[in-house]
Design a protein around this nucleic acid. Structure first.
Length: 578
RNA sequence: GCCUCCGUAGUGAAACGGAUAUCACACCAGCCUUCGAAGCUGAUGUUGGGGGUUCGAAUCCCUCCGGAGGCACCA
């Protein structure tokens, strides 16, 4: 198979090395893409590694091995040469590239799939907003990353399920309920718009928070309220609680729909406490936990970790205990092979403790759990806080971006039927891409003007390039230019370009992205692909009466296809016109 | 104080121990009577300091400086 070209090269290398009476285990052979296309399609460092072992000159050895491989005359290899400090560079044949092109055109939406997680059950938990609180740009970051990972697992053969874990109990909820009660005259009617209800919840929470700080009486009331909410012992409070939670969840659903996420499972802290406490009780029996100052704790120091509280001195489960319960509940509903939990990196250390505890209590689940801590999306002024009001909601950012895009769209005066929907897709594409183009572990200081780009290395650039391919293809169709997947060949002096050299790499990039939990490889690759295509576009007339037009149309079709498949993995839509 | 993560052009980022460290933004000079100028071409400019390991270090180790996060009943 041509997409296993790395295996083909590996075999050729092993064969050549053996002929030269040298020994290089196949799994130690590194085959990679050179940083620059001028160094060929792949290169290997075997000569440098062998030279070190045998004391030979790496450059001479590379030349010998290259000559031997060339002599083996593999049909996919156009040229092999030694270069640099002792690299062996491979240049592939035109036939290889056109076969790659054909594969894209045949597989279409399926191009890029792999079998790394075939038949595996994967659960991805992400987003985790708290009911009664705002859905802010931090949630947008987690959601964007988690959704992309879920999609990467899916194209890798997994049955990926999306899960969201939400804090529907706790002091923040009590503050909001207290606020709802105090501001009862301003409470929206049942038939009010959802936006109004959510705004009210935000005000109620802010009011409760402020009063809790300023007024000791209010603070005491909130504490009592918190207990009542936990116990569900007061009918009036339950009514307020249920109402507020319903509004919140309805609102979150509208945000998810807009972002293109749909959860299979929604878990709540109010449900995980019981299972968590039971687990901790059993762990206390078996000596995993111990009592300390009236609380039940896990001593992490023997493992190089922190001590953490699992049941507080009132006997209530903390977040740690609830998380243990959550793991059990998740596995009960969906016996996964892999459970990925995506959160901010502030809880990295805490999650290590949790994994250690899980390892002692149920090692099978611990081994299947992977925590991914991503960087923070912070504001230039410092930490974002919904308490002090220095918070930007996800919708504010999207709407602000959308307004800019609508202005731009009106300037370009394109004939676009679904203007509003398209602008929404571009706004979200810009935001998601700005998050996914970099390593997920790193912070993003979110400054609207600096962080969100609609030109250059950005989501809209990729969407624009896609729209351009579709526009060209539309023109080709009306000119009656078609192509056959069989027998695609270059004609009339056309040569292989960087476009073909980038296209076949897509499945490799997908594999690497899923193995390393790193969507940014997809983002970077798509940007490079779009770059070489825009370059090609500037130099080549695609739709014409010339005989090479058919091949060029096929190439354009493939580029559009890969951009679409790749952007889909980032959760970014590809409007045909923008 | 202890632990973890991070320091790459003016700014924001990329680089699975490999070749002349790659992009974007910004700034400057060009390209639309020709398939979408949200595009293309060219110019300027970078690995925090000091040691070490290696044929080869932005990447691994030590140390110093700077930043972020965490460190017992919040999540």
């Amino acid at each position: 198979m041509f997409n296993d070209i790395r295996e083909v090269l590996r075999e050729e290398i092993v064969k050549a090395v053996a002929v030269l009476n040298l020994n290089m285990p196949a799994d130690e052979i590194l085959i990679e893409h050179p940083a620059d296309l001028k160094f060929g399609d792949y290169s290997t460092n075997v000569a440098m590694a062998l030279a070190q072992k045998t004391g030979q000159n790496p450059r001479d050895l590379a030349a010998k091995i290259a000559a031997q491989i060339a002599g083996q005359k593999n049909e996919n290899i156009e040229k092999v040469e030694a270069a640099g400090a002792g690299f062996i560079n491979f240049y592939l044949t035109a036939g290889f590239y056109t076969a790659g092109l054909k594969k894209i055109l045949v597989e279409k939406d399926n191009f890029g799939q792999n079998t790394l997680f075939e038949d595996k059950k994967v659960m991805v938990e992400y987003t985790d907003p708290n009911p009664f609180k705002l859905f802010h740009i931090g949630h947008l970051m987690t959601n964007t990353i988690g959704e992309s990972l879920a999609r990467l697992f899916q194209v890798s053969g997994a049955d990926a399920r999306r899960a969201c874990y939400q804090g529907d109990v706790g002091i923040h909820v009590a503050k909001a309920i207290w606020g709802m009660s105090a501001l009862k005259d301003e409470r929206p009617a049942a038939d009010s718009k959802l936006a109004v209800k959510v705004t009210f919840l935000g005000q109620a929470y802010a009011f409760g928070t402020t009063k809790a700080k300023e007024d000791p009486t209010a603070a005491a009331e909130i504490k009592i309220l918190n207990k009542k909410i936990y116990e569900r012992s007061d009918g009036e409070i339950n009514k307020l609680y249920d109402l507020g939670k319903k509004w919140s969840l309805e609102y979150f659903d509208t945000v998810y729909q807009r972002l293109g996420t749909a959860f299979d499972y929604k878990f709540f802290e109010s449900e995980t406490g019981k299972a968590g406490r039971e687990t901790v009780d059993r762990g206390l029996q078996s000596g995993v936990f111990e009592k300390s100052d009236g609380a039940v704790v896990f001593k992490g120091e023997p493992y190089g970790l922190h001590t953490r509280v699992f049941l507080n001195s009132d006997g209530l489960p903390t977040y740690e205990a609830k998380e243990l319960g959550l793991a059990k509940i998740k596995y009960g509903l969906y016996p996964y092979d892999l459970s990925v939990v995506v959160t901010g990196n502030e809880i990295n250390d805490y999650f290590k403790v949790l994994l250690q505890v899980m390892n002692l209590l149920f090692p099978d689940l611990a081994a299947k759990t992977k925590h991914l801590g991503h960087g923070f999306l912070r504001l230039p002024g410092g930490k974002m806080s919904s308490r002090t009001g220095t918070v930007i909601t996800a919708e504010e950012v999207i709407d602000k971006a959308k307004a800019i895009i609508l202005t731009k769209m009106k300037e370009t005066k394109k004939d676009i039927a679904n203007l509003d929907e398209t602008a929404d897709q571009i706004a979200i594409g810009a935001i998601k891409y700005s998050i996914l183009k970099q390593d997920i572990g790193k912070d993003i200081i979110f400054d609207f003007d600096k962080s969100l780009s609609f030109v250059g290395h950005s989501g809209p650039y990729l969407q624009y390039t896609y729209a351009r391919t579709q526009s060209v293809l539309e023109k080709a169709a009306s000119a009656g230019i078609t192509f056959q997947c069989q027998g695609l060949t270059l004609t009339l002096g056309d040569t292989i370009t960087p476009v073909e050299k980038m296209l076949y790499r897509f499945p490799e990039v997908v594999e690497r992205a899923v193995v390393e939990y790193a969507p940014h490889y997809i983002a970077t690759y798509l940007y490079e692909l779009a770059g070489v295509f825009n370059n090609y576009y500037a130099d080549h007339k695609i739709v014409s009466a010339e005989s090479h037009s058919s091949y060029r149309v096929a190439l354009t079709t493939a580029v559009g296809q890969v951009l679409k498949n790749g952007l889909n993995l980032l959760g970014i839509k590809t409007p045909a016109k923008m």
